[in-house]
Nucleic acid binder design. Sequence first.
RNA 1: GACCCUAUCGUCUAGCGGUUAGGACACCGCCCUUUCACGGCGGGUGCACGGGUUCGAUUCCCGUUAGGGUCGCCA
Length: 460
Amino acid sequence: MTTNSVSLPDARPVRVRFAPSPTGFLHIGGARTALFNWLYARHTGGTFLLRIEDTDAARNSQEAVEVILTGLRWLGLDWDEGPLTGDASAPGKGAVGPYFQSQRGDRYRERVAWLVANGHAYEHEGAIRFRMPRDPIVIPDLVVGKVTRELTDREKLEPDFVIVRSDGQPVFHLVNVVDDLDMGITHVIRGEDHLSNTAKHIALFRAFGVAPPEYAHIPLILNIDGSKMSKRDKGASLLSYIEEGFAPEAVANYLCLLGWSPKGNREVVSLPEVVSLFDLPQILRHNARFDLKKLHWLNGEYIKTMSGERFHELAVQALQRMGFNTAAFPAAYVKAAVETAKPKVKQFTEVRHFAAFYFRDELEFDTAELRTELLATDRVLLGRLRAAFAAVAAWDAKSSEAALKAVATEAAVKIGLLVHPLRLAVSGSPVGPSLYHALEVLGREKVLQRLDWVLNQAPA
RNA sequence: GACCCUAUCGUCUAGCGGUUAGGACACCGCCCUUUCACGGCGGGUGCACGGGUUCGAUUCCCGUUAGGGUCGCCA
């Protein structure tokens, strides 16, 4: 029997929560904690609650809460109980609210008074301290196993810890436990950074005379170099993935793969399927490093199978964020243009390279060198290509391809000699969508215009 | 300093005493091709180290090392 197979079937319906502090920032690790809680609730048919731990007035604002709500909604993590907006005083959804700690002061005062009255806590220099047991506390953990936590040397000097500051504000350990108790939380799924603190929480639950919830401490997400991911690190904020053009389903899928596996050599797994496969004991115990390249690949996988409509929606969104006024172009043109980028794009910010040229009046080169390179091409050859294009009867991908190949054959050159400068001339970039399809979408007029521009420039 | 957790390719992982240690990303090579990209095929790289236990350890135990976490009138 391994140490972590400790869970017996529990009659109580599962109630889990994500309890972030509104810092104006949703950490990617926090997002994964929320995801794992959500997965467990959905897997067990339980309830997922969102609780805002805004006891620290200094870092508390409505906007900061909205960041969390927006991030969770973007990932597709809906909560059964919790706030509806960032407004702490507004009513939330659920029977055990308020779901903002700033609104629960009475509960905390009541609980603290009880602890003091029953000898579990006492006032000391204006603050209230909890009488912490001196003996080691055993933490049964669904992922880590049985952990015996002894006091550290510092704690031995003063084992009792503050639960209410001298200014009257209750402290995290107290409010966290009181809320979990009052909200009927059955499983606490949180980052491993809380494992050591759990001894305090268990002691508090016992003082209140109730059994602590089940615990599941999940490993942390580290930077790719193994250092801890702090707020400052690139990619630490969930918001950055929204801005960098990732699809939420890809990010959620990738997060699932960190510390958990669907087995069977699979990587692409939809959230509904993860819901059915997910369970706590299978979570890995070691930290994972965040590999942006794999997320990038995974995002590409999702884009490949994405409907044209959804791709269109997200691509246009990305273009507009980059300042392209796609609305100024005919809808059919935008649709066709964006479509040519779909097979090549792995991230929505990349539509800039694959579709921006459709929406620019002036040719813009990726680099100055490319401009020089284009102006150095054989004008005679390019002129013949222009003439052939002008003579094509019906302008489409097939006919422009045929025309280009005919010119190449006639001139006895490899088609690459035409293709490369042509691509540069119409898009300003050496990489892009299927060239002939791009020509078709762009329209003959614009193609000839851009070729003329090159032909009229002084040779490099 | 003390306490706690962890350790399979560069990265994410499968493996739960006997395997040619599997997959994916990344990387390299080849093919396809619209000299790019996309796609296809192929390739290399791994059980941190040292002791046990065992007929046999990647797998179990102990230690070392390394990484991470915690010890706050922050959450």
